[in-house]
Structures are given as C-alpha cells and as structure tokens.
C-alpha cells in the first residue's frame, strides 16, 4: 500500500444565512460540509460523487485552502495544511492544484494563453524569464495544443481546448495532487473522453494523484480507484470503486447507482427510486441524513451512524450493516 498523500479529518464548514423579517433576524447554518474524513493515497484517483449542492465543491476549496473550514484538519504529505502561514503556505500550495468546472470562466479573458500558463511560474518566481517561455511551450505540447496558441486569448478556444489550458496551468508546478472539480461535466461526451485520456496520460507520466469530483457516475467509475459517495455534506459510503459499483450497500448509493442508464436495451433495469426531495441543507434531518427518504428507515436512524468497515475495502455509514443497533 502506498503512502497517504492527503488526509482530511473531521472537516466541517457551515455557512451562516440570515433570514430577516421586521421583528427579528434568524440565523441559520447551512451545513455545507459536515464532519468529513477521507484519505487519498499517492498515485490513486479518488472519485467523489454526490448530487449538486451536497458539498463536493466546498470540500475541494477547503483542500486547496480557498475556504477556511470551521473545524477539522487537512494533512498534505503529513503536514497540517491549515496551520501553515506565509511562505510555507505558498510553497505547500504548489503541491495541490485545481482544474476548474467552467471552462468559460476559469481563464482570465484579458490574459493570453501564454500568460495564463506562465502565471504559476510568475507567482512562485521559478525559472528565469526566458526559461518560462520554454516551459510554457512544453506544457502546451504536453496537453496537446500547438505552441503558436501562446499569444491568443481564451475566447478563441473551444471548451475542450480551454480545459486543456486549465490542465496545463494546473500541472505547471509539478503538483502531487490535482483536484478536478467537475472538470469534464461542461464538455461534450467525445471531448470528455479526450480530456479524461489526457488526465490519464499525465497521471502515468508524472505520478499524479487525482481527487475527481463529479456527479457523473459513469465517468467516475471509469477513472477512479476509490470512490466516496456524498449526501448532504457527509460521506455515506466509501471504498474500492469496483466493490461499490458491484455491490453498493448504503441505500443512497443503491438508488444513485441504479439511476445510471444501461447501455443495452435488453438489460433489465431495476431502478430504486428514493421518495421525496433532497432536504434543505439549512435544517438537515437529525441523525442519518437520509432518514426522511430511506426505504429501510428504523428508529435508530435518528442518531448519526458512523462510517464503519464492512469489508476490507468498503466503509458504510448505515445501521443496516452496522452492529451498533
């Protein structure tokens, strides 16, 4: 087993929302990320799946240091990322990079492609001025773009090309961990495949670790070694990708996976549909967050289940598989 590169322990992030009327101000908390722990080993791809609004992107931003969590710790390479300050924080940032969701928003429209990819070098002041140009050309070549694009502006490129530019910027400083926050969701299926293949090649070449965030289950299955399923700010099931896809345990995972479209019309589709809507994250249900919609709900579900191992490579937070009851 390889070394853990990223360890997140009990990360919590609540946002305060105020609802005002004439007489009083009510303060409520949106539980964006609620007590999430996960470990990503070096060289693997960890897929994080969940509905929109379940806190995946907030978690990603906590890991990159863009958002400070209310509590919890983030260890990168064994070092507590959240305790770092000043220069050591800047240096540590080089090990974690992010590929963003919206290709039309993640590149500064007033900068040329050359400037965008050079930005990491400028910020961290690595290489000499002339060397930087050379490095940018190398990076463009790596992601399959011609070096003559250097002086062009982002609006001249398609979504797939922009995402390649975003990837080039992310790998510029030779990071160890790359967070792909819905990196391919905005692209056409054929372009998705190209970008995924590119990510795969880069992983082999630079021994990268990916945290792959997506709501597209088939994409996640294709790329991930391990996956985690998030529901309302919590991880409900995690483990080896194949194990989870072949035998999902948590009722939410079951419902989620049964929703993947089948490729062949003769394959019998037994969809498990959860009743009701996603509860508001402002006032989430007590205990297991799924207890408002779960078909197997029991009285004990009013208390929070822990994420416990049920097999060697599978952990589930559900009393159905838990001896605590």
């Amino acid at each position: 087993m390889s070394q853990p590169l990223l360890e997140i322990k009990n990360v919590k992030k609540h946002y305060q929302v105020k609802s005002k009327n004439i007489f009083s101000t009510q303060k409520n908390n949106v539980h964006a990320v609620n007590d999430v722990s996960l470990t990503i080993n070096e060289g693997e791809t960890y897929g994080l799946v969940g509905e929109s609004g379940c806190g995946k992107s907030t978690l990603a931003r906590v890991i990159t240091g863009l958002i400070k969590p209310d509590s919890g710790r983030v260890f990168i390479d064994g070092e507590d990322f959240l305790q770092l300050k000043g220069k050591s924080l800047r240096d540590k940032r080089r090990t974690v990079q992010m590929v963003f969701q919206k290709p039309y928003e993640s590149l500064n429209p007033k900068m040329t492609i050359g400037e965008i990819i050079r930005a990491p070098f400028d910020i961290h002041n690595v290489y000499h001025k002339r060397e930087r140009e050379e490095k940018v050309k190398e990076l463009l070549d790596l992601v399959g773009l011609s070096e003559k694009y250097m002086s062009r502006y982002p609006h001249e490129f398609s979504g797939g090309q922009r995402q390649r530019i975003g990837i080039a910027r992310a790998i510029a400083l030779h990071p160890k961990l790359i967070i792909c926050d819905e990196a391919v969701s905005a692209l056409d299926v054929s372009i998705q495949a190209q970008v995924l293949n590119l990510l795969d090649e880069l992983q082999k070449e630079f021994k990268l670790t990916y945290l792959f965030i997506s709501h597209d289950l088939s994409v996640v299955r294709h790329v991930s070694d391990n996956i985690g399923i998030m529901y309302l700010g919590e991880i409900v099931e995690t483990g080896d990708a194949d194990t989870i896809y072949s035998s999902p345990k948590h009722p939410y995972t079951e419902a989620l996976l049964s929703a993947i479209p089948k490729a062949h019309p003769k394959q019998v589709k037994t969809q498990k549909i959860l009743e009701g809507d996603l509860p508001s994250p402002i006032n989430p249900p007590e205990g297991c967050k799924l207890n408002t919609r779960c078909p197997h709900v029991m009285s004990i579900c009013k208390t929070k289940p822990n994420l416990e191992s049920i097999k060697e490579k599978q952990k589930v937070a559900c009393y159905l598989y838990n001896d605590q009851r």
Partner: peptide, 24 residues
C-alpha cells in the same frame, strides 16, 4: 473561477487585483 484559480496558485491579493480584477 479565474480569480479562484489565481488564489489557489498562491498569488498575492495585490497580484489578483492588478492582473485579474482591474483588467476585467
């Protein structure tokens, strides 16, 4: 997102304002 991307690279606020915000 391009402002976020600069920040996640470790850019100073001065650089972010000068390069990402003012030109836009």
């Amino acid at each position: 997102e391009y402002v976020e991307s600069e920040l996640s690279l470790g850019a100073t606020h001065f650089r972010v304002i000068l390069k990402s915000i003012l030109p836009n």
